[in-house]
Design a protein around this nucleic acid. Structure first.
Lengths: 189, 189
DNA sequence: GCATTTGCCTAATACCTTTAGGCAAATTAC
DNA sequence: GTAATTTGCCTAAAGGTATTAGGCAAATGC
């Protein structure tokens, strides 16, 4: 009996691909076993359980997203940085819808603290260095940026902006213009 | 054998309550049957299937949300309307997390077109009447409002803003201030 | 009151999750 | 290079959810 060469990393990677193909909520230990042509029980030597698999996929997605975000920010500042970073989010979600959904999985606090989610927050703050914001406005602005990025991408992926003019790409550009204008002119309390 | 008096409405209502208690993704036909103390198969006379149940809960939530939104908008304009409407979203999500999650369910186009989601779009446009925006900027702004409302609420519910200062309520107020300022000063292309 | 409809039931199939225990392949120790 | 050990995948089994088919009793209509 030839061994399949399973391990947590390969399973996570394949799980991420599966998620992009059929949706994150359709990722099951069974489907993953089929993909490797092994019996379901075999996966339990490498994964604690179904939740473990999902968490690993989420962490993978957060990692990739942070990596791409960092690459986009390198050498950029101000609106240029804002736009580049925002596009990383949107493009990642479009190219990897399952992984993006995974990245939204609620993690328990310790896992979250050890995840790349922390980097995301730091990068948002790095973007704001190009604008003239001090605490606590900086935090408010970080939260707003996160809300707009995530909100727009998730509504767009849910089909909320299709079937109506103007097309979503144009709104996205204008929303980023608006965010830039807002950050340059953040209102006093 | 005494009949339980099931019907689609009661099941949907109970499903919504169940969603708020245990989370929308934990709403199952089985759990609902347990709640009514009947056998699972009995529910299939009233519901097409599990997806039908979830869709009905989603439509219920969209309806309630639209109703509350309309009540909040009555007699208000400008920033007052913006704030009241935004708070309806946030409060509803906090009081009814399961229903709010349900409202995010992706509906097939015909169902979506017949849902209260249409009212939501109209109400957003009504809010913008208090600002000086013409098409296509009005559409861009509607999409941005939706993104911020949904994005903020969903990040907040995911625990993204807990465990860090300043508290989320303050950010929410300042984000709404910022949105108001932005709408009063929407940048030209 | 009887016929019909309706509502809930039992039974059965199928899929997903998870645990326990077994055997063979790979690795390590000598 | 072989023996001992570890590791990896398997079979088996139990429990949960979804869904369909067919049956009997309660409610409804006339």
């Amino acid at each position: 009996m030839v061994r399949a060469g399973l391990n947590a990393e390969r399973l996570t990677q394949a799980g991420a691909e599966l998620a992009d193909e059929v949706g994150f909520d359709q990722v099951t230990v069974s489907a993953l076993a089929r993909r490797f042509d092994v019996k379901v029980a075999s996966l339990y030597s490498h994964l604690k359980n179904s939740d473990d698999l999902k968490t690993r996929i989420a962490l993978l997605a957060l990692d990739e997203l942070a990596e791409q975000g960092a690459a986009a920010l390198a050498g950029r500042a101000g609106k240029d940085a804002l736009t580049a970073f925002a596009n990383v989010y949107r493009d990642y979600a479009r190219e990897h819808p399952g992984r993006y959904a995974a990245a939204q999985l609620r993690l328990d606090p310790e896992t979250a603290a050890a995840s790349a989610g922390v980097k995301h927050a730091r990068m948002m703050r790095a973007i704001l260095r190009g604008y003239d914001l001090t605490e606590p406005d900086q935090t408010h602005a970080v939260r707003m940026l996160g809300s707009v990025f995530h909100g727009y991408v998730s509504l767009e992926m849910g089909g909320g902006f299709s079937h109506s003019a103007p097309d979503s790409q144009e709104s996205w550009s204008r929303v980023l213009d608006a965010l830039d204008a807002l950050l340059r002119n953040w209102p006093a309390p």
